[in-house]
Write a protein that binds this DNA or RNA. Structure first.
Lengths: 134, 134
DNA sequence: TACAAATTTGTAATCAATACAACCCATGAA
DNA sequence: TTCATGGGTTGTATTGATTACAAATTTGTA
């Protein structure tokens, strides 16, 4: 699906800035930071503002068009793939890797919270870093 | 278990500052921020430095004596309870609530990462906020 | 005691994120 | 067409959590 339709489907008015940011997320599954998105897009869009990137990413998150990952403690990271999957971060190199969820977690919610979203974050050492260390 | 033993068990030299910080985490299951810990402890320990709180919390995390929660995007939060449980954050009031894990998530790790830690973060609206809204 | 290593402290600096006000631009009414 | 309105964008200034760093203090050991 293209970025324009993706925005409309989530009730977001598709301005040109929102389209290129959404498009970036849909075509780069690298869990980029705001800064990475801004730097990548400003080459072709010199007038793009960093504030717009921040505003847009918050909007995408609020409307459910993208995920805000807090697995990396340094920066917020964003994921255009909102289907159910877990995220692994290598504490050695910082790389974030998608992992499929075979069995989703089941939690005890006696207190009666309304659950809107569940994220699974995994920390460890990736295969490349294990090789380098040994 | 007391803070002193807890530190020793995780291979941490128990200085007086480390003991009071560990003790605070073990006796306050509120997922406090660095700042909350600092402000609570400096009343009885006026010479305590904020840097020491940061240093100690990082050490506790590295040694597995406490959990660093990144569920709250504003601040790092710490949890002295390292047993398996999930965390719920209310996107309305910011409160963090522990939830028991009935079934832990099972993920597909074809790429061969070495998994050290898994955290389940849940976002939604708590019961109190639901009442207030309706 | 003396010395080295580890720990703590306070200050300065960093930098992601936000606040804010000015500007731009699409839309619709007259 | 002109004008007004409001949402969207932009740039700058600011905030505030966290870190860097070096000096001071404490601890362990001989």
């Amino acid at each position: 699906m293209n970025a324009y339709e993706h925005l409309l489907k989530h009730g977001i008015k598709p301005s040109s800035q929102r389209i290129i940011i959404m498009d970036y997320l849909l075509t780069h599954r690298t869990h980029p930071t705001s800064d990475e998105i801004y730097n990548a897009l400003k080459v072709q869009n010199p007038t793009l503002s960093k504030t717009t990137v921040y505003n847009t990413l918050r909007l995408l998150e609020e409307k459910g068009a993208a995920l805000n990952l807090s697995i990396d403690e340094k920066n917020a990271r964003y994921d255009g793939d909102t289907t159910d999957h877990a995220h692994f971060i290598c504490t050695c190199c910082g790389k974030i890797i998608d992992m499929g969820i075979i069995t989703p977690p089941e939690v005890s919610n006696e207190i009666g919270c309304e659950i809107k979203q569940m994220q699974v974050y995994i920390k460890g050492i990736c295969k490349d870093c294990k090789k380098t260390i040994n």
